[in-house]
Write a protein that binds this DNA or RNA. Structure first.
Lengths: 201, 201
DNA sequence: AACTTACGTTAGAAGCTCTAACACGAGCAT
DNA sequence: ATGCTCGTGTTAGAGCTTCTAACGTAAGTT
């Protein structure tokens, strides 16, 4: 396992990255349905089925793009001061990737679904430590929130904080997903103030 | 233009409806990307390009399904007592159609985009009359909201009401779109109480 | 020197959208 | 009655896609 021993492995991941990068380019240009293994191969100068040495198929490539996007979003959020602003900025800067996350282009419940939902859940781990408690949730919800936090490996979470995290996430997601589809622009509305109404801590 | 004069037209719309109904079935079964003109034709017993007499292509069929879904959602909301509950119920009952509305499967900004955004805007016309004013928006937002309301043909709208409508819509949309993708279920959470926190009037 | 492994190639099956060309039947006009 | 037009169906086929199968080749290992 020295530096030189896995030269092949390094070339391999390098090519995988090139494929993914070309895939993102196509995604940004033509949407999720425009992503084509064949077209990527042509763009990389290799011919057709060569890419199946690196990805089992189109679905696996898409799943990997989604997981990468989650990781990238997590990184952007963890380094930022404001969850709300960073979340919005990330989504507006690359709406095609945000769509990839929350407008799942994969066919119905398949083998990847669990990994994707799990990745989404990790966003909450980032959000919770930055929040102070809001109003206390009703008992049933409170218990469910505590159980969920314990299951996620953050056992001593005030349910009022967890509730605030869930609400904040869903509100910002609602605003962002309407914004990137142009709904506010169609109203002649600058949605900036709507984000400002959200709690920041 | 009597009843009998457009027999052909009636047959035509009847067949179009059958096609759309089969399309919805496929949509529910396999997601938007599984919708195939060819497969619909096979299901209807006709063979392949026959359907191009009725729809210019796959995109037009999809667009029409989206517009129908908007109309159906509007109908469900206009007859209901609670916007929040009716909106959620409609989305949960047919998540594939809700996804069709807000996770646009159409390629980038094409000719249909305007009609779709316009249809989304009409949801607001339903919501506004049911609401009482919330907090007053800041001046710039207030002006934009009034201008938008006037443009939509409902001129005497309190901007505080319009703001509440936009916020309520985006919050409920956020909750619904997370719920139908299974994010709350993955948390072991019943999201019902989260909807209850939203204003109802 | 022989073997294994990874990687590329071409051929091809099965599917899709969509166009082109042709066939048939019903309704209207001469 | 004869003929024309129009709407609707058909098959053939181009061009795209995913993905499998079989083959060649070059590089590293034993």
């Amino acid at each position: 396992m020295t530096d030189m021993s896995d030269m092949r492995g390094r070339f391999r991941t390098q090519i995988r990255d090139e494929v993914k990068s070309a895939a993102l380019r196509q995604l940004a240009a033509g949407g999720a349905q425009a992503l084509s293994i064949n077209a990527i191969a042509k763009e990389l100068g290799v011919s057709g089925p060569a890419l199946y040495r690196y990805f089992a198929g189109r679905d696996e490539l898409l799943t990997e793009l989604i997981l990468d996007a989650y990781q990238d979003l997590r990184a952007a959020l963890s380094g930022a001061g404001s969850f709300v602003d960073a979340y919005r900025a990330w989504a507006l800067a690359q709406p095609h990737r945000y769509r990839l996350l929350f407008a799942a282009p994969l066919p119905g419940y398949d083998a990847h679904a669990d990994r994707l939902v799990a990745a989404a859940q990790e966003l909450m781990n980032l959000l919770i430590p930055t929040l102070s408690p809001g109003p206390a949730p009703p008992p049933a919800l409170s218990a469910a929130l505590s159980a969920w936090a314990a299951r996620r490996g953050i056992p001593d979470v005030d349910p009022a904080v967890a509730l605030r995290a869930v609400e904040l996430w869903s509100r910002v997601h609602g605003l962002v997903s309407l914004e990137i589809e142009g709904n506010f622009a169609a109203m002649g509305l600058d949605p900036g103030p709507l984000y400002s109404f959200q709690p920041r801590e």
